[in-house]
């Protein structure tokens, strides 16, 4: 006749003691050791408070149709220049050379966000002129919406020079976001929604590339044209214009931000509780051992007659 376990239930044994006993002291110590060390363990193992996190977003970028072009036309330092700023064009005088520019912005995946800028620039040259170097500055309107709403005006700057006169410069690159400090997790961030180039200024110093780049690079949030491989084509035929072809992509960016209060608490809570579970288990075993074996005196009250209430 084989026996088998037909049913089981745990029996609850209560241990009672008065306030001023060793058992009470033990209980206090155990409680402290259970709940405080997990906090210290979680903190000391780094990353308890999440201070920086990242998210992905494709920015809403629009070319602002502001352009500044400087081209050196001989090795002595003569140059021609053009911009979309009337004041600067007036100042340039004889050095002004108006190119033919065509621009197209494409939305390739039809999600309402533009993905690519195609810019073609044909700079007519006089017979004695050759292009040795090109500085091109384009401005963009840059917006992010997912966490904090970022609205800013940004810049792409291309500089290329060669000892051999060129016929064409081809640029294909990404407009990358650069940030020094993380963005806030909410709110409107529009401190940089100011013109990169003050086109209304009649003073020459407003168009000094040094000043423009210096004040731009001072910003926490900038864009930079990452174009590792500009192609400089040599061999321009007489009478043909110098060409600049640019393809600038607006890629998906990984943006770092400072998590908000509840996000920080959430991740800290997860870490705390996962460490706390181990401590709870360990100290539960210790307590059971201590009281079952009467290491510390306490009065056990067995289940006896359970009062169904």
């Amino acid at each position: 006749m084989a026996f088998y376990e037909v049913y089981s239930h745990p029996a609850l044994i209560r241990y009672k003691t008065s306030v001023c006993t060793k058992a009470t002291l033990f209980l206090v110590v155990v409680l402290c050791l259970t709940y405080i060390p997990p906090l210290l363990v979680a903190y000391r193992s780094q990353g308890f408070w999440m201070k920086r996190s990242t998210y992905e977003e494709q920015p809403v970028v629009r070319f602002q149709y502001q352009t500044l072009l400087v081209a050196a036309t001989n090795t002595q330092g003569d140059y021609v220049a053009w911009s979309t700023f009337p004041h600067l064009n007036n100042m340039l005088g004889a050095n002004l050379r108006i190119p033919a520019v065509s621009v197209r912005e494409e939305d390739q995946n039809q999600d309402g966000k533009l993905d690519l800028l195609n810019l073609q620039l044909h700079l007519p040259l006089k017979p004695e002129e050759q292009v040795y170097s090109v500085q091109l500055l384009l401005t963009f309107s840059y917006k992010l919406f997912r966490m904090s709403t970022v609205v800013m005006q940004s810049l792409a700057y291309v500089q290329h020079s060669s000892s051999v006169p060129g016929a064409k410069l081809f640029i294909s690159g990404d407009l990358k976001l650069q940030q020094r400090t993380p963005l806030p997790h909410r709110g409107v961030y529009n401190v940089y929604n100011v013109s990169v180039i003050d086109g209304s200024s009649p003073f020459a110093s407003a168009y000094d590339l040094d000043n423009i780049i210096r004040s731009y690079q001072n910003r926490n949030l900038t864009t930079v044209l990452s174009c590792p491989m500009p192609v400089w084509t040599v061999g321009r035929a007489a009478g043909s214009p110098f060409q600049i072809n640019a393809e600038i992509r607006y890629p998906v960016e990984v943006i770092s931000y400072r998590p908000g209060f509840w996000e920080t608490i959430k991740f800290a809570w997860i870490q705390y509780v996962s460490v706390l579970l181990i401590f709870l288990w360990v100290f539960e075993r210790i307590q059971r051992f201590v009281f079952q074996n009467q290491v510390l005196t306490a009065v056990p009250i067995p289940v006896g007659k359970p009062h169904q209430s």
Binding site: L68, V70, G77, Y79, A81, L88, N90, M91, L92, G93, N95, Q135, P202, F203, A204, S205, Y207, D208, L209
Partner: peptide, 11 residues
């Protein structure tokens, strides 16, 4: 001097 080191007289 504006965009280059050359003098821009009409500034």
């Amino acid at each position: 001097a504006a965009i280059t080191a050359d003098c821009v007289d009409s500034s």
